[in-house]
Computed example of a mutant assay.
Amino acid sequence: MNVETLNRETDALARRYDYGDLRVLAADIGVEDDRVSVDVVDDTVILILTGETDAQYELDAPEGDVTRAFINNGVVTVEVEP
């Protein structure tokens, strides 16, 4: 799944940013942090949402080496070094 598909399927606001030596994927999924887990396997970001409706989403990570992935205040952030 790409960022545009996540936006359509979840009403999330997701964007990719390039900051020279860092690429960032940020998705405001609008749920409480304790209801979401984020993990990265190879070049795939996996979001697992729990609660009233359980869901799993897989996103293509930006190309490069993922340095960290986390959620804070409902915003999933994946940082990648190109």
Rank of each mutant, 00 (worst) to 15 (best):
V3H: 01
E58Y: 02
A69V: 14
V45H: 04
T50Y: 04
V31F: 03
L59I: 04
E63W: 12
N72D: 15
D60Q: 11
D65R: 15
A61Y: 13
L49A: 01
T5L: 00
Y57S: 01
A14M: 09
Y19I: 10
V3T: 10
R16A: 06
D39G: 13
A12F: 03
N2P: 00
I48K: 12
V76Y: 04
L49I: 10
L25M: 10
G74Q: 06
V41Q: 14
T10K: 07
V36N: 03
D33M: 04
T5V: 00
L47D: 01
Y57T: 03
L59P: 00
G51T: 08
I48W: 02
T67I: 15
T77D: 03
N7M: 00
V76W: 04
P62L: 10
D21I: 13
R15F: 09
G30D: 13
V75W: 05
I48P: 00
E63Y: 13
D43E: 15
D60R: 12
P82N: 04
D39Q: 14
V3P: 00
D18S: 14
R8D: 03
T67P: 05
V41R: 15
V38L: 06
V75C: 08
D65C: 01
T44E: 06
T67H: 07
Y19L: 13
L13D: 13
I46A: 05
V78F: 08
F70T: 14
A12I: 08
E52H: 07
I71V: 15
T44I: 10
G51P: 06
E52T: 11
N2D: 11
D54R: 11
A14K: 09
R16C: 09
V45E: 02
E79H: 15
L49E: 06
N73Y: 09
A14C: 14
G20F: 11
A26C: 07
V38Y: 09
R15Y: 08
L25H: 09
I46Y: 04
E81H: 12
G64M: 10
V76A: 03
R8K: 11
N72E: 15
V75D: 08
T77C: 04
L49F: 04
Y17I: 11
M1A: 08
N2A: 01
D34M: 03
R23K: 15
A26I: 09
V41C: 06
I48L: 03
I46M: 04
V45T: 05
T10C: 02
V24H: 07
V40D: 11
D28C: 03
I29H: 02
L47M: 04
V3A: 01
D18C: 07
V66Y: 10
D65E: 08
E79Y: 14
D60I: 12
T5D: 00
G30W: 04
D11I: 10
A14S: 13
T5G: 00
A14F: 03
E52R: 08
V40A: 13
P82K: 12
I46H: 09
E4F: 02
V45I: 12
D28T: 09
V36W: 02
Y57H: 09
Y57M: 01
R15G: 03
V40N: 13
D21E: 10
R15A: 05
A27L: 04
E9S: 09
G20I: 10
Y57E: 01
R16Y: 08
